[in-house]
Structures are given as C-alpha cells and as structure tokens.
Amino acid sequence: MSLRRDARGKRPQFYADPAMDQAMSMIMVLAEEYSALRDRLDTVERVATSAGLAAAIEAYEPPQDVLELREARRQAFLSRLFYLARKDATDAAENSSDASFTATINDIAKG
C-alpha cells in the first residue's frame, strides 16, 4: 500500500537559488534522522539490561520524565542548529551591522 507523498500545489521557492531550498530540506531530513537516532540510542541504553532487547525497544513507552528529557534535548539541539539565525535576529534587535562593526574598530583605533 503506498500513499501519495507530494502535496498538490506549486511549492514556493524561499531562497534566491533553488538549490538552497533543496539543500535546506536535506539538512532538515538529516536533522530529523539524527534526532530519531538519538531517541533510539537513548531507548537502547535504557533497555539494554533487560531481556528481549528488540521487542522491548518497540514496546518502550517513555514515561513523563523521559519525555521531558528528550524534548529538552531536541530543543537544545535545534537552538544549536539555528545559532546563526539567532545571531542574525539578535544583531537586528541590537542594531548591530557591518557599519557599526567598522565604526567600533575605527573608534577603538582612535580611542
């Protein structure tokens, strides 16, 4: 049984170069897979001591404290992944620009 995988409707282009759109989507798929692997590894570590490892992994139901731990880790990971976007927004909020950077260097050279 196979379902449709592509949504009808022209996909918007977000970046000036369409290759960048593809690269970004591939990066995010890798991030998704990395996150899935981390969850699996976490489960493996938690059930490794018990018998019937594979079945136990599939059946594993993370309790609330594990749910919280995993979500905190995913958010921390995403924060690292998007650190340049965060820097960009912070620069914008603080009016930090190439011009202000150059001005600072010039100021310090004089002062």
């Binding site: 991030a31 998704e32 996150s35 981390r38 995913r74 995403l78 998007f82 927004a89």
Partner: peptide
Amino acid sequence: ARQEFTKSLKGFVQSGLLPG
C-alpha cells in the same frame, strides 16, 4: 521519534525563529 522531531521542530520555529 521522527514524529516527535517534527513536533519539536514546529515548536522551535515558533519559539526560536518567529520572535526574530
């Protein structure tokens, strides 16, 4: 795990990128 990731990513876009 992938589904949890997509939920986390949406949450991050909202709390980590939208405010900028």
